[in-house]
């Protein structure tokens, strides 16, 4: 649905070109929630703004439904933007308008003249985000989470097919983040909306994204289904995100296990195997002993997963590993 083709983007700063994006090529499917994660300066803000041409690529194309939007004229760009909603880290609501007026704003800009029709649509949108009682308040009277809900209602006003989220939960506390993400997931499911989320928080991606691209220094370091990318990170940047999220420092982990005897492996369970008593069964069958050194059991979107770092001693370790792999677990050597 959204295709980036050979995208390069550079900013001219003081006579020299500073590259922001260097060769971006990937596709976002219709109806998915796509996460773009990267540290600040990785180019994610620029990348998401290419989709509604708030930024233009230096070279390359952005295709939406196979139409090259970089080739559209000014009027074409405006019409395209009306079909794409966007929400922001700092909400960017008009402080001089009430909640209802803010939600009506994109409809008025798009030239919807029928006041009755606007009122009906605004009421439905406010009901959708749970703010019916706040219609006549001004943004300054709302909490951060409520402001973002207004932002979401406003972004949905023109019935877009794509919703862009620019660090939409970064200014919110964890509980509010949770409820805003839940709302986004519901909208994605009910309206079949394609959602593109940029964030520096892995938790956001893990909770709602279907696929993720890890952006590093203007390039896609890794891309794929969230579970695949985060459970088996291949690129250093992805690994850093995973470790940051687990509050572990890579060097620290290796030192901690230096005095632990045996063969250390990382086992990854996904789906139903997460809750099965596999380790015990395999230990009994092969006569090994195991100790769990680190681990976490959680969910990625709707899929449960577990990831354990385990030291095996005694018995037939190779046979144990083979059996675990045979039961669908991913087995990675940490230390032979």
């Amino acid at each position: 649905m959204i295709t980036f083709k050979h995208i390069h983007k550079a900013y001219r700063v003081g006579g020299s070109d500073i590259p922001a994006l260097q060769g971006i090529d990937f596709e976002i499917q219709a109806g998915e929630i796509f996460g773009i994660i990267g540290h600040s300066g990785a180019g994610k803000s620029t990348l998401v703004r290419l989709i509604n041409l708030l930024e233009r690529p230096t070279s390359g194309q952005v295709l939406i439904d196979n139409v090259d939007i970089t080739a559209l004229d000014a009027e074409g760009v405006r019409l395209q933007r009306q079909r794409i909603g966007m929400i922001f880290q700092h909400f960017n609501l008009l402080s001089s308008k009430t909640v209802a007026q803010n939600v009506a704003f994109p409809l008025e800009l798009a030239g919807v003249a029928n006041k009755h029709q606007i009122r009906k649509r605004v009421a439905a949108l406010l009901a959708r985000v749970g703010l019916t009682d706040h219609a006549d308040k001004y943004p300054a009277q709302l909490s951060g989470g409520q402001k973002q809900r207004v932002g979401i209602a406003r972004a949905l006003a023109t019935e877009p097919k794509i919703l862009l989220c620019d660090e939409a939960t970064s200014a919110l506390d964890p509980q509010t983040t949770q409820s805003v993400l839940q709302l986004l997931a519901d909208i994605n499911r009910e309206l079949g909306l394609t959602i593109v989320i940029i964030t520096h928080e892995m938790d956001v991606v893990r909770r709602i994204a279907d696929r993720v691209a890890v952006l590093d220094a203007g390039r896609v370091a890794e891309i794929g289904p969230v579970a695949e990318v985060f459970l088996h990170p291949k690129h250093a940047t992805t690994r850093r995100f995973v470790l940051e999220d687990e509050h572990v420092d890579e060097g620290e982990e290796r030192d901690d296990f230096a005095h632990v005897p045996g063969r250390i492996v990382r086992l990854t369970f996904t789906g139903d195997s997460t809750y099965e008593p596999l380790l015990g069964a395999v230990a009994r069958a092969t006569g090994i002993d195991f100790s769990i050194l680190a681990g976490r059991i959680d969910r990625i979107k709707d899929t449960p997963y577990g990831q354990l770092t385990v030291a095996f001693t005694g018995g037939d370790v190779p046979a144990a590993l083979a059996q675990l792999a045979g039961r669908g677990l991913a087995v990675e050597e940490v230390r032979a």
Binding site: V77, R81, A110
Partner: peptide, 11 residues
Amino acid sequence: GIVEATQAMGA
């Protein structure tokens, strides 16, 4: 940001 948001609405 308000200018950017308004621009993003196709104004």
